Amino acid sequence: MRGGRREPAPGAVLLPGWLDLDAQLRLVAACREWARPPAGLHEVRMPTGGMMSVRMVSLGLHWYPYGYRRFAEDGAPVKPFPPELGLLARRAVVEAYGGGAGGGSEVGAGGGGGSGVGADGSVGEAGGAQVAGAAAYEPDIAIVNHYPHGAKMGLHQDRDERVDAPVVSLSLGDSCVFRLGNTETRTRPWTDLELRSGDLLVFGGPARFAYHGVVRTLPGTADPALGLVGRLNITVRQSGLER
């Protein structure tokens, strides 16, 4: 793990280098499979008519501005949420909020055994009893964003879910400047973080509904071994929606 744990805001935890290179390679390969049609990587048109500069693919449920549905832009059923990604996200919550000393999963983190996660993948009391939704964290959806060179994302809140469980964010490829703001407005105060490939950011509790976005990516900063142009970001969430 590169560097040390940081808590840029109450409820927000950054664990640099949480994913080792092998884990990053596995996730990049998985993202390429998820990106294939049908229900693959696509551009997103906002209600204002503009197009987002990132492209995305959804797992579990399809995200659109501003909600979720079962079918993707091409009319195909959305790809299922991978159980191994859910296990990885539950381990991430344990790492962020206590009870674990490593990640570890088929696709996931390098490191230790992730104590605090039960045999069924559930997060125990050590895995965040003081953070809303952490102890009973059951992720069921994910959004994979691809940032080509020059792409960014404006400050926004993740409010389309029906629960306040934490959001797990994994970075792959090029570094970016990530802006973590406050819960009331898109204006200051905010904190700018450099997120690098392999970094884990979890935001829950007081930071769950903070405005956040990507100010810019830093082209050419990815490990060439990843074979990746631009940046991939995987956010894993608990929707609270009935199926």
Rank of each mutant, 00 (worst) to 15 (best):
D158G: 11
A151C: 09
A134M: 07
P139H: 05
V144R: 12
A134G: 03
Y137K: 04
E184Y: 09
G181T: 08
D158K: 11
Q130I: 10
I141K: 11
S169Q: 02
A136W: 04
R186E: 15
R179A: 05
G154I: 13
R162P: 05
R162L: 15
P139I: 05
D158C: 09
C176W: 01
H149G: 13
G173H: 02
D158Q: 09
A134D: 09
C176G: 10
T185L: 08
R162F: 13
A136K: 10
A142F: 07
D174L: 00
V163C: 15
D140E: 09
T187P: 08
L155A: 09
P166V: 05
H149Q: 14
T185A: 15
L155D: 09
L170E: 00
T185Y: 06
A151D: 01
F178N: 06
R179V: 07
G154Y: 12
D140A: 10
A132I: 10
G133I: 00
S175H: 06
C176Q: 01
R186S: 10
D140F: 05
V131S: 00
G154S: 10
H146W: 15
C176E: 03
N182Y: 06
D140G: 08
C176P: 03
V131D: 02
A151N: 03
P139F: 07
L170D: 01
S175A: 13
M153R: 13
A136C: 12
D158I: 04
Y147A: 04
Y137V: 03
Q130M: 14
D174F: 01
V167I: 15
A142G: 04
L172Q: 01
A136N: 12
Q130T: 15
A142I: 02
G154R: 07
P166T: 14
I141N: 14
G150L: 06
A134L: 04
D140L: 10
R186K: 15
H156G: 06
F178D: 01
D174Y: 00
Q130R: 15
P139L: 05
A151I: 11
I143F: 00
